[in-house]
Design a protein around this nucleic acid. Structure first.
Length: 487
RNA sequence: GUCCCCAUCGUCUAGUGGCCUAGGACGUCGCCCUUUCACGGCGUUAACACGGGUUCAAAUCCCGUUGGGGACGCCA
């Protein structure tokens, strides 16, 4: 890209809800581009819609970004020389510019009421015209203005779109052209003086010296309006930021990603036990690719490889299965201590353990045998609970699988062998049991060990049997086997 | 409706005119490993939306069609 000055990219969400997958993909690309170029990431909160934005959502957004490891150089919590970074704290700035635009006649007061506008839109739609402001208040006479004022009307500030067209080069899509007859005059500020996105976004991008605007493609058609504000501000064309409109992330059925066709809230992914690096890795692959066949990449590799040139222009479908596959890979790559750190909160929150030191030791020794068996951290509690439950009981449907004579016999033989074992480690247990059940009784391993598995873990699906027995300890293992042997 | 954007296996993608009888990954299916479940290994499956050009040569460039998406707010 052409700017010689230091790159300044911004991520500017409007926190009207929890950050969703699409927001995060944008944030990730913003971050990766800033880091790749050695530039700055500016995090700005677009909270001009006071009806919908809440502090709770703002805090959640900050927290989510931090959790994902997408750090910013300027913005909430870290400050910066172009702040404040909450638009709600910059109201006077927008008011000043709105007034300037009015003075320059780039903008004008519009006295149309919301109801009137809606009515006219309906008429336009019915006659197959594009709905949009018709320019009624563009050139009001002093008399007309006076009448509106006397009627008690409060005007909004509306930007005048001159005749002509806006052409700009999108870094992902190439040259894009909008004829102004399709871009109606738009509102900059409400009657109470509060700014709208159209004003605030452009003013802030200029004032914060943003060089690159990477955002969702839904904002593509609002770009001419943004450029119109730059012009009114007197910004030179070579100083406009470079726009790059990222393709959508869609749900399974080709509709926008929503709760129905794949989860959207990042909070949900966190609760399920997706690792931040897995989420980022997967999201990076939606609309971008490293270029070679390597897909499992670290954040450092992403930073090294990410360029806007490699971003796709076509939308991507979100695929939970692939995210899970990547998450599984990332989990398997964790060191034991890292894995322990991620696993503990899940175990504690699900009340499998309370967090005592002795429990943690058991967890630590058990984690290696489940590490390659899970895809999400939330699966851990169910897999390890058999090591901690106080009143262990085999569920009836599993119990029924080992009530037959053959299973009972296996359990009795196994019990007798295991009771006399002097050393309780998984290799000793295994060799003793193999001799007794496989060699002497001639059973298939699958059959022989299945009954034991159910007896001691409560399920026919479990971590490896002999390691599980070792972790359980001799006493509890024997108790559990005894408990399922019918009298 | 109007404007804008988009179009390679089921999905994410590689591909920037010859290296493409289109490569990888996830998924699917099969086999191997195996005490269950996994992991791992091997193999399988399946795509350039359609029609015209341009060119010696097109998945790649151009035009059109079709299909999908977005925008058209005192939301962002």
């Amino acid at each position: 890209m052409s700017n010689k000055q230091a790159v300044r990219v911004r991520f500017a969400p409007s926190p009207t809800g929890d950050l969703h997958v699409g927001n995060i993909r944008t944030a990730l690309f913003d971050w990766a581009y800033a880091r790749h170029t050695g530039g700055k990431l500016i995090f700005r909160i677009e909270d001009t819609d006071t009806e919908r934005v809440t502090d709770q959502y703002i805090n959640a957004a900050i927290e989510t970004l931090k959790w994902l490891g997408l750090n910013w150089d300027e913005g909430p919590e870290v400050g910066g020389e172009y702040g404040p970074y909450l638009q709600s704290q910059r109201l006077d700035i927008y008011a000043t510019w709105a007034q300037k635009f009015l003075d320059q006649k780039d903008a004008y007061h519009c006295y149309c009421s919301a109801d009137e506008l809606e009515e006219r839109r309906q008429v336009q739609m019915k006659s197959n015209q594009a709905p949009g402001y018709d320019g009624k208040c563009r050139d009001l006479s002093a008399d007309q203005i006076e009448k509106f004022k006397q009627a008690g009307r409060k005007p909004v500030v509306r930007m005048r779109m001159p005749d002509g067209e806006t052409v700009f080069t999108d870094a992902i899509r190439g040259e894009v052209k909008f004829e102004h007859k399709y871009v109606p005059d738009f509102v900059l500020a409400r009657a109470d003086g509060s700014p709208l996105y159209t004003l605030a976004v452009a003013v802030d991008d200029v004032l914060m010296k943003i060089t690159h605007v990477l955002r969702g493609e839904d904002l593509l058609s609002s770009t001419p309006r943004q450029i119109r504000v730059y012009q009114a501000m007197g910004v030179k064309i070579e100083e406009y930021p470079i726009f790059a409109h990222l393709p959508f992330v869609m749900g399974q059925d080709n509709a926008k990603l929503s709760k129905r066709n794949g989860e959207v809230s990042i909070a949900w992914y966190r609760e399920q036990g997706f690792l931040p690096e897995a989420i980022c890795n997967y999201l990076a692959l939606l609309g971008w690719s490293p270029g070679d066949d390597k897909e499992n990449i670290t954040m450092a590799e992403l930073v090294e490889l990410f360029t806007v040139e490699r971003v796709n222009s076509s939308p991507a479908r979100f695929d939970m299965k692939k995210l899970e596959a990547i998450n599984g890979d990332k989990i398997r790559a964790l060191t034991l201590d890292e894995f322990l750190g991620w696993a503990l909160p899940f175990l504690i929150n699900s009340k499998v353990i309370s967090g005592q030191a002795d429990e943690i030791e058991v967890v630590k020794s058990a984690l290696p045998i489940i590490q390659e068996r899970i895809v999400k951290l939330a699966e851990i509690p169910a897999m390890l609970s058999f090591l901690f439950v106080k009143d262990f009981k085999v569920a009836p449907e599993e119990l029924s699988k080992i009530s037959d004579a053959a299973s009972q016999n296996v359990l009795k033989v196994a019990l007798s062998k295991v009771e006399v074992l002097s050393s309780w480690d998984h290799t000793s247990i295994e060799s003793s049991l193999r001799v007794a059940l496989i060699e002497e009784l001639g059973l298939k391993p699958r059959v022989a060990f299945s009954a034991l598995r159910i007896a001691v873990t409560g399920s026919h699906i479990s971590p490896p049997l002999f390691e599980s027995l070792q972790l359980l300890g001799k006493e509890r293992s024997i108790d559990r086997i005894k408990a399922v042997i019918s009298k």
